[in-house]
Design a binder for these strands. Sequence first.
DNA 1: CGGGACTTTGACACCTCTCAACTCTCGTGG
DNA 2: CCACGAGAGTTGAGAGGTGTCAAAGTCCCG
Lengths: 219, 219
Amino acid sequence: MDFTFAIDHFDRFSTPVLSKPKTRSFVRSFKPGSHLFRKGDEAKQVFQIVSGVLRLTCVTENGHRQVIAFGFPGDTVGFPNGTTHNTDCDVLKTARVIPYRYTAFENDVPDSAAYQHLMQAALREISNMQNHFMMVGCKTAVARVASFLSVLTDRLGEPLGQYTKVTLPMSRSDIADFLGLTTETVSRTITQLCKDKLIARENSCALVILQPVALLALT
Amino acid sequence: MDFTFAIDHFDRFSTPVLSKPKTRSFVRSFKPGSHLFRKGDEAKQVFQIVSGVLRLTCVTENGHRQVIAFGFPGDTVGFPNGTTHNTDCDVLKTARVIPYRYTAFENDVPDSAAYQHLMQAALREISNMQNHFMMVGCKTAVARVASFLSVLTDRLGEPLGQYTKVTLPMSRSDIADFLGLTTETVSRTITQLCKDKLIARENSCALVILQPVALLALT
DNA sequence: CGGGACTTTGACACCTCTCAACTCTCGTGG
DNA sequence: CCACGAGAGTTGAGAGGTGTCAAAGTCCCG
């Protein structure tokens, strides 16, 4: 009944977020479309994202898909529910990740730094999800999309002149399933934001944030 | 920029979930309406809920309130974002909780069991939140309310003859802010479920689940 | 050039939000 | 003991927003 999943220590110790190991032996690369793990898989490791974008999804028996989270550089994904993963995790944009393996609890002294690292990653994950709730808690589509774009601006924004450019690594369908909307509504909302001059469309996946504060104010 | 919040060890060690300490000195009791912590408070401890119900809320600057989670017996709440809490936590139903205090990192050997306990609580929290996403990801009000009631049946249900009775510890407004709906829609939806004979109303806060499987199927 | 997947746009029905009135419960005070 | 008022919950009517279905447009790649 009470699962006894034990998190003992990392394989590697004291690896600060975004550090670059001298050797690349511990960094694995995944191409778009590939899976890091699937729902039901035994949870053996978590992944710290160095670069790229991941997607965590959950599908119910009746076919409804929910995008639980996107994984951006700096995030750590793969925290299990008990001994198995309860989401699928696949790659949207070629990702380099550092896997940290769980090992069975063996009564040896664990490494504090590794624990802290793992715990902090879990706390960040919780914090991200709370942020996600604030998005889907918004009752209008513009508010949800606006707050989503605001987050993406912070996480993926690249300077472009005086503005910030965001290249969306995910499809409209992904955004819709993340925000609890339909693809049509997401598309219409983005069009509306363009008409209002809050953002501009370079192409379907490249947006320029013209008025970040006004965008955030819609939330 | 990068917060260095350190979680070192619990004050108390090896307290399994739902264990009953010989002395009650470590169990604190909170009355309805009181706060365990508020947004912005320094995060010094997490709380394992022995009995009662808690509510975690987040209010934006524009006045919109989001209920992030409800805390039921067995849950642990209070995981911080960095060094401070990013939600308010108050009591809906008289709660007995076991506080676990964080202490600053001091290079001494941490207790593995305590770490595991804390980490497992965090993983449970993540799992609960993923569950929450499946609810609010539902596009119709009936689906959201139905899945919400299903969860409550599991967590708070009491047998009543051949059926299960659920006494809602939270207001309609809380449910609405949890599911991203309005109080009116929640009320109407519950009325609809009653008409469909899936549930029955004993009074405004006591429901009887007549057809749990049919209820879950609406999700 | 052509096919396929994704995105955008349009029209319409339905659902949910908004505003409002009413009911119910409960505690207070006459 | 009853009247009253406050707060929460329920119900109703109407407007607006979002889902659904359909079609056209765009982009990429063979």
